[in-house]
Write a protein that binds this DNA or RNA. Structure first.
Lengths: 189, 189
DNA sequence: GTCTATAAATAGATAGAC
DNA sequence: GTCTATCTATTTATAGAC
């Protein structure tokens, strides 16, 4: 039947899901192929039947992680930037309590060290994120600014070794995004 | 004489400068102790007379890199956020043409994977950056938002594999920072 | 397709001569 | 303090059995 995955597709999907979770949380270099395969309940040797290299897996895992993160939004289709940013800039998201975090923030400075396939996947994912923001704010410049406040704010909040300061930063970014969506100059054209 | 460094201090400083440059550009995992020592014109074996571990070096290199990046600002003391952001969010800074870039942006998602010493150093550096922004904008919340737009915007612009899109993002962040510094509610208290 | 075994390279850290 | 040499561990990728 069409909905049934073949055995190979199931294995591939388990590898990809494991990689999405591990890479998003720990970055490219900190995770070995062995760790990914063990989480997928397979052995190292089976890896190269599914992906051509670790870097190839990384690129596809970023795309997968973004899809997973997108699915777990509290509302299917947030109707405004305020709701979107309150979910995105929450302490739960920063602390990755559900292991389904946004790779755009968690891996941002990791990506500039990777090959062109990885960068292309990241760029495509970021463009999707900004398109989503633009559909809510109706203005491209404000959508770009909001995206930077959210992705950059979340990334920075994770690097900080001071909970109060980290929370303060997240709160300021939420205010920034909300202010942007309430300013004059709203433009749906 | 007091200004003269001892031989040991000179070696230590060369190691630190080499590490600052290499780590900022390539991240922690991509750089080996051997590469740092070669750039400092020493051999591997001499490393542990100066630093206790690679991670120890990383923490101190971040602080050093921030001092170097701060020194190379075009103006000694930018008098407003617009000037500051135009330098910080330039294509030259993104492309690291002078190899003296800001580690806050270049390493942001790298830091969350490191030990507490590294995180503490990064946090302290970030607090200094925000204090600088606050002294220019006079308002803490706006300073935090400006810092995120600058650091987050620069970090994101580096991950993007599309020059036009990257430039567009930098431009939007400059506008965002400038707008913040011109809004009502300016508060010098 | 998945397994075990291994090749081949690299890196962090230490030992000991000078 | 700096050097050469080495220990030990890890990792990507491949080979070949089933």
């Amino acid at each position: 039947m069409a909905w049934q995955e073949t055995h190979k597709e199931q294995s591939r999907d388990r590898i990809l899901e494991s990689a999405a979770m591990l890479f998003t949380h720990h970055g490219f270099e900190q995770i070995s192929i062995d760790q990914v395969m063990k989480k997928a309940e397979l052995t190292r040797g089976a890896f190269y039947s599914h992906f051509s290299s670790k870097s190839d897996l990384y690129a596809q895992a970023i795309s997968k992680a973004a899809k997973i993160a997108y699915k777990r939004k509290p509302v299917d289709c947030p109707s405004n930037m305020k709701d979107f940013s309150e979910y995105y800039l929450s302490a739960q998201h920063r602390d990755d309590e559900y292991k389904q975090a946004c790779p755009l923030a968690f891996l941002v400075s990791d990506i500039s060290q990777q090959d062109s396939q990885v960068k292309a996947t990241y760029t495509k994912t970021l463009k999707g994120f900004i398109a989503q923001a633009q559909s809510l704010s109706g203005n491209r410049e404000k959508a770009l600014q909001s995206a930077v406040l959210m992705i950059g704010g979340l990334a920075l909040s994770r690097a900080i070794d001071d909970k109060d300061f980290s929370n303060e930063l997240l709160a300021a970014c939420k205010v920034g995004v909300t202010s942007l969506s309430m300013e004059e100059g709203y433009d749906v054209s």
